[in-house]
Design a protein around this nucleic acid. Structure first.
Lengths: 162, 162
DNA sequence: TGCATTTCGTATGTATACTGTCAATCTGGG
DNA sequence: CCCAGATTGACAGTATACATACGAAATGCA
């Protein structure tokens, strides 16, 4: 009800209030549902964590913190983003003073990435809220279903990403 | 291996090849997995259906075909897009000659939407491939798991979208 | 060693997404 | 009938996503 995008999208009951009754063929479309779940996840993230850090920026920050000294391409491979996209993400993290780019002495094509002290603080500050987002997201499921859902996601990703 | 983005993202084994062995905290993140699944779904869609029609454009076309005479806001509510996004989607469908905008006589704010004959043909042409995408997407799961996955997605969407 | 191939980061162009804002328009209450 | 408030579609601005292409730089192989 008080949901943000619900207000913008209008209150015309969408196809999920009574999934059985609707004849919208989109209902048998896992691709469509995954898209909408993604939207829900992002909205929950912004509502819970705040606008300072996007889901993508958080993932990048975690990955850089765990693999300091990686180049942008390696980072992109790690979290599944495109080389062309990661540049802008790093730009914005760098502007906030949370990440640093340093030229590599051995391979001058590489931007060695590292998290600053401020970046580490921001990460520590955001992490509890990020955990809360994951719980909220799965909350509608039974406890036993949550692990199942995770397992199925990983199974599909492993198969499709090789 | 021959996967498109795998080549672009680099061959540095990502976190899904051996989910158990990696210490990347992103692994306990359903939000992150949903994002990656969405990427996989879009890639499968483009590979299978072709570049003429995006997933979003297909969903819009289906919705307009089923609710002719709806305005853009009603359409957005139906498929869960933003009012600001749907305008551009309709623009591109209109450029292809698959959708028409007509001013409503009763309410001059509304753009009444309808699918053209060509649009209906494009829809009929694309639909089998779109079905194939859904099957490919769920293929890594056991047959019994596929319905479960769908059910869980709908459960979460119903709860979060009210 | 020399050069074709590959890789890296960047830039460009297209397509979602969503926030905020605006003019035009409709609606309800007085 | 008139005006306050809500709705509609458009637009600007920001942030993913990805294909393509480019220069710089590293690599491999003859």
């Amino acid at each position: 009800m008080s949901r943000v995008s619900a207000a913008r999208a209008g209150h015309e009951t969408p196809d999920y209030a009574d999934a059985a009754g609707s004849d919208l063929r989109l209902l048998a479309m896992p691709g469509h549902h995954i898209r909408r779940l993604q939207q829900v996840a992002v909205r929950l993230f912004v509502e819970t964590v705040g606008p300072e850090l996007t889901p993508v920026q958080y993932a990048a920050l975690v990955a850089i913190a765990q693999r300091p000294g990686a180049g942008q391409a390696a980072l992109a491979a790690l979290i599944g983003y495109d080389r062309a996209t990661i540049g802008g993400v790093i730009d914005r993290l760098e502007q906030k003073g949370w990440v640093e780019r340093k030229a590599s002495p051995e391979d001058r094509r590489l931007n060695l990435l590292s998290v600053t002290a401020q970046g580490r603080e921001a990460l520590a500050r955001a992490t509890p809220a990020v955990q809360a987002v994951q719980e909220k997201l799965l909350e509608p499921l039974e406890v036993s279903e949550r692990a199942q859902f995770e397992r199925m996601c990983l199974k599909m990703l492993a198969a499709h990403l090789g």
